[in-house]
Amino acid sequence: MTEPRPQPLVRTSDLSKRYRVGRSPFPAQRRIVHAVEQVSLDIFPGETLGIVGESGCGKSTLGRCLVRLTEITSGVLEFEGRDITNASQRQLRPLRRQMQMVFQDPAASLNPRRRVGDLLADPFRVHEKLSRSEMMDRVEDLLVRVELLPEHAQRFPHEFSGGQRQRIGIARALALKPRLIVADEPVSALDVSIQAQIINLLCDLRDEFSLTYVFIAHDLSVVRQFSSRVAVMYMGSIVETGPVDAVFSAPRHHYTAALRSAVPVPDVDNRPGQRIVLKGDLPSPLDPPSGCRFHTRCVAATSVCRHERPVLSLVDKAHFVACHHPRGG
């Protein structure tokens, strides 16, 4: 690690997010869910960090924390070197241009009674003082950029298909030329053929606007295609992170290996090796296992796994794993 590293765009250290569930008047009955536990990440300009994991692993919550759409319980979040862990909404406002989010279901975030042109003009109204004609020009440019037509500005969200609505969602995120886009399952509600179109579009935009992406998805093949680095989450923590090829071709964490082998591949000749089928279900997040959260389902678990929480440690070039008994490289 001698090469000079640029300053990270986003840096988190020990970032945690806890929810309280239940509203019992007795404190003993209130229970805490650790949605995100002590996540430390550096996200460098121009890279695409994929975050994978199964439902309930905390990946979406982490994404929302990164752009401060939700309060952070503890830890530190820095954006361009500035601590914004506890920044107020007013302090965050100028930063909002720099960090945007794309959601799984764009329809839910588009007001059905407003024309797409008006929706896309909103960011300009809030952040820039532009004449009406300038604004409409910018909106049309945006629509063209996401491969829609300028005349689509006059239509309402429900007149578009799912793929087109996601393009509108992307256009809106793109409007103010942000540095960071957090995309939370942006293609998982779409049909396969449309999914590919959107992935291609996101790739083009990354090159054109030199964007930094955090790409959250449960679909490993999509993450592999799109990301340069990947972080695997299990029960709120990152269990493995590293370059995509290294993590997917030689996973060091047993959970990553199981996840990797579970992906069905449309190929009869090139079957992946032995399928690792995990035993049992995800433990309840209200009552997480002691030590390594994965020890209840892990083939390599020993007594140390039950008592001691493993920390992320370097196993290879930029490849970290949180495991007491990592798999061979």
Partner: peptide, 25 residues
């Protein structure tokens, strides 16, 4: 063909772009 091209491969080299099917059903 388009359907297969739309699925990102899980091993081997990653294509620069996916063979998406243009348009929608």
């Amino acid at each position: 063909w388009g359907l297969f091209g739309s699925i990102p491969p899980m091993h081997g080299p990653r294509p620069a772009r996916l063979t998406a099917i243009p348009g929608s059903p």
